[in-house]
């Protein structure tokens, strides 16, 4: 029985087909070759021990919203479903979707420097989040206009939380 998963990794949509026949598991990523997979795990959250075409790998998988956070050899990935609910950043170095600003870290919002309807330009500081005694300025990824603000001064935000929505100037998509 084959199952098709549409997943979002680092802002990029990927299709992964998992085919299970008895105890045989085959996985195909995008247009790639089918890979023979041997997998064991105690559950989620938990460690997935994989042998991919004879090559061992391990991943620590936990739920994060509608998707998963997967840690592989020191790198964290957020893998979300490609449609709806995927309001997470793409893990380390990940980017927000166009029109959305998410909190890159958990902390306390100490300043909101724009209001709904304000125009801003790329690089302008929109808000400031304090964590571990350090103030972190959250800058606009694009030129645009503030559509909605989902946090308030003095409030706590979690990493990946949607804090601001905007209408981006122009119609180009996020690079």
């Amino acid at each position: 029985m084959a199952t098709r998963h549409r997943l979002l990794l680092d802002g990029e949509e990927r299709t992964v087909v998992v085919d299970e026949a008895g105890d045989q598991v085959t996985v195909t990523v995008g247009e790639g070759e089918p890979l023979s997979i041997d997998v064991t795990t105690s559950g989620i959250p938990g460690t997935f021990s994989l042998v991919i075409d004879g090559q061992p790998a391990q991943a620590y998988v936990t739920r994060r919203g509608q998707g998963f956070e997967v840690t592989v050899d020191g790198r964290r990935f957020l893998v979300g479903p490609a449609t709806g609910g995927g309001r997470q950043r793409g893990g380390i170095g990940g980017k927000d979707r166009l029109g959305e600003v998410t909190a890159p870290l958990a902390g306390v919002v100490v300043d909101v420097r724009v209001a709904v309807g304000d125009r801003f330009s790329a690089g302008q500081t929109l808000l400031v989040i304090e964590a571990m005694k350090m103030q972190n300025e959250i800058q606009a990824p694009h030129d645009g206009t503030v559509k909605a603000i989902h946090c308030e001064r003095g409030g706590r935000v979690e990493q990946g939380a949607l804090v601001l929505e905007y209408d981006a100037d122009g119609t180009e998509t996020a690079s």
Partner: peptide, 15 residues
């Protein structure tokens, strides 16, 4: 590592 993460996430989705 991204490939491994995708495979693990797809298997986790199935579970």
């Amino acid at each position: 590592r991204g490939m491994t993460a995708l495979i693990a996430a797809a298997l986790a989705s199935g579970m």
